[in-house]
Design a protein around this nucleic acid. Structure first.
Length: 430
RNA sequence: CGGAGCGUAGCGCAGCCUGGUAGCGCAUCAGUCUGGGGGACUGGGGGUCGUGGGUUCGAAUCCCGCCGCUCCGACCA
C-alpha cells in the first residue's frame, strides 16, 4: 500500500472521547472511526489487524477439528423462547420487529441457533461429537459502552459450540479447546492466562476466562510466574496439558484465594491487571434438554448430548493487544498480526536514487509493506510510523540510497541496523 | 438504570455569563524556503453554531422540548 493513496487518516491530536491508550491509538492511527455509541467502522489498517487475528483463530480451530460455519446476525425470537432466554436476557438484547410484526433480535450469542441446527440435522450418536464455530458480529446493548472496541455494543466474536456423547467426551473437548486457545494467543503474540471463572447467565459448572495482562485491565489478577514462561504449551497430550495449566495458580480478584496464594514462593507471585479476551464453558445438557435435542444411542435409547460453548472476542483482542503493547509514541504490533510487516520511509521524495531504492523495496515486499511516498518531512514520517506500530521501519535517505544501504529500525526495541538491500529484506521477511 | 456534563470547520478548543458582521491552533489547498523526529513563511478554501420551537428589532449566546455523545457509579464477551 502506498500511503499517498491510502485511507489511513492519522490524527495528531486525540479526540476528546478517547480515555484509554488503545482507543486513543486506534483513532490516531486511523484504524477505526466511531459511527454511533459503541459502534465502529474499521478502516483499512484496523480491518487488516482484525482479519489477521480472525485468521489465526480460524487456523487453530480448524487444527483441532472444529468446523467453521456462518450463522446469521438476525435471529428469530421464537428460537430464544425455546430455551427460555428470550425473557431472561433482558435489555441487553437488541429486539427488532419486521414489517409483519414478527419478533426478531440481533444475536448476542448463538447457543440456541446452533443447537437448533445440530438438532435438526444430527440424529445418531455416530455423528457425535460435533464442534461447529463461526466468526460473526454480535450485538449486546450495553448500558454504557466505553473504551473503544474493548466494550463496544457491536463486536466480532469467534463463538464455538461442542456436542458430545457423554461427560467424559465433553470434558476432553473442553480441554482440547483450552489448549487451542492457548496456542492461538501465543501465535498472536500476547500472554493470555486462563483463570477459573463464574459461569454467569450461560450456566454450567466448568468455566475459564482468558486474560491478557495489561496495566489498564478491568480485572485484578493474581498468577504464578510459571505462566510467563509458556511451559505448558510444549505439552501435546491434552490431559497432561490441562493438568499442568490448572495446577498453576491464576485467579481474578473475584476468585482470589489468599490461602493458596500464600503457599506460592514470593518470587513467583505476580499481581496485575487483566483484560478478558475469551471464556469457555461446559454446561452439560442445559440447552439440549431445553430445546429437545436428543439423539439415538448405541442401545437404541435417546439421550441428550453434552454441550459447551467457547468464545474469543476478536475485535476486543485488537484493543487488548494495544493495551498490552504500546509506548508514548504509539502501537507496537506483534509481527503475526501487524497490518504491515514494514513501513518504507522515503526521507527524500523526489531524489532519484532514494525513490528508486524505495520502489525496489516496495516491489519486493508488496502487500507486506506500507510505502510512505508522501511529500512530507522525515520527522512526520517517523512519528506516524511509530504511531502505527509497524514491526519494522525501512528508512531510506539519499546517503543510504547512494551506498545501497537500508536503515532498519525495530519498533519494539528501537534497535537499528544498517544493511545492504537484500539483507534488510531478508530480516524483514523473518 | 441512578448521578454529572458536553454538542461551534476534519481534529482540539475559545466565544455564551453581560444578545449586535462566527474566531484560534492543528489539519487541508496553492506557492516559496527547507529536508533525519509531526519545520517556517505568504496566500486561500471550508460553518444550516446538534435539532425543533419560543422570547427579541436582532439568538451560537436567553427559555422550553427533542436527538446525539461522553464521564462517574451499578452491570458486562
Amino acid at each position: 500500500m502506498r500511503l499517498s493513496r491510502s485511507l489511513i487518516p492519522t490524527l495528531k491530536e486525540t479526540p476528546a472521547e478517547a480515555q484509554i491508550a488503545s482507543h486513543r491509538l486506534m483513532l490516531r492511527a486511523g484504524m477505526i472511526r466511531q459511527m454511533a455509541s459503541g459502534i465502529y467502522a474499521w478502516l483499512p489498517t484496523g480491518y487488516k489487524v482484525l482479519s489477521k487475528i480472525a485468521q489465526i483463530v480460524r487456523e487453530e480451530q480448524d487444527a483441532i477439528g472444529a468446523q467453521e460455519v456462518l450463522m446469521p446476525t438476525i435471529q428469530s425470537a421464537d428460537l430464544w423462547r425455546e430455551s427460555g432466554r428470550y425473557d431472561a436476557y433482558g435489555k441487553e438484547m437488541l429486539r427488532i420487529t419486521d414489517r409483519h410484526d414478527r419478533e426478531l433480535l440481533y444475536g448476542p450469542t448463538n447457543e440456541e441457533m446452533i443447537t437448533a441446527i445440530v438438532r435438526d440435522n444430527i440424529k445418531s450418536y455416530r455423528d457425535l461429537p460435533q464442534m461447529p464455530y463461526h466468526i460473526q458480529w454480535k450485538f449486546r446493548d450495553e448500558v454504557r459502552p466505553r473504551f473503544g472496541v474493548l466494550r463496544g455494543r457491536e463486536f466480532l466474536m469467534k463463538d464455538g459450540y461442542s456436542f458430545d456423547l457423554n461427560y467424559e467426551g465433553a470434558v476432553h473437548t473442553y480441554r482440547t479447546i483450552m489448549l487451542a486457545y492457548m496456542r492461538t494467543f501465543q501465535r498472536i503474540g500476547v500472554t493470555a492466562i486462563p483463570m477459573r471463572a463464574d459461569t454467569g447467565q450461560i450456566g454450567g459448572d466448568l468455566s475459564h476466562e482468558f486474560h491478557i495482562l495489561a496495566p489498564t485491565g478491568e480485572s485484578g489478577v493474581f498468577y504464578d510466574a510459571a505462566f510467563e514462561a509458556g511451559d505448558a504449551l510444549g505439552v501435546t497430550d491434552v490431559n497432561a496439558f490441562y493438568e499442568q495449566v490448572t495446577t498453576i495458580y491464576a485467579a481474578t480478584d473475584e476468585k482470589h484465594d489468599t490461602a493458596v496464594w500464600d503457599g506460592i514462593p514470593t518470587e513467583r507471585r505476580r499481581e496485575g491487571r487483566g483484560i478478558e479476551v475469551g471464556q469457555i464453558f461446559y454446561f452439560g445438557t442445559k440447552y439440549s434438554e431445553a430445546m429437545n435435542f436428543a439423539v439415538t444411542g448405541p442401545d437404541g435409547q435417546k439421550f441428550y448430548p453434552e454441550m459447551g460453548s467457547y468464545g474469543i472476542g476478536v475485535s476486543r483482542l485488537v484493543g487488548a493487544i494495544i493495551e498490552a503493547r504500546h509506548d508514548e509514541a504509539g502501537i507496537i504490533w506483534p509481527d503475526a498480526i501487524a497490518p504491515f510487516k514494514a513501513a518504507i520511509l522515503n526521507l527524500r521524495q523526489g531524489d532519484a536514487g532514494t525513490d528508486a531504492l524505495c520502489e525496489k523495496l516496495y516491489a519486493a515486499l508488496g502487500a507486506d509493506a506500507l510505502y510512505d511516498d508522501r511529500e512530507e518531512r522525515a520527522g512526520q514520517k517517523f512519528a506516524e510510523a511509530d504511531l502505527m506500530g509497524h514491526p519494522w521501519q525501512m528508512i531510506v535517505g539519499p546517503r543510504g540510497a547512494a551506498a545501497g544501504i537500508v536503515e532498519l529500525k525495530r519498533r519494539a526495541t528501537g534497535e537499528r541496523f544498517e544493511l545492504p538491500v537484500e539483507e534488510a529484506l531478508a530480516k524483514v521477511r523473518g
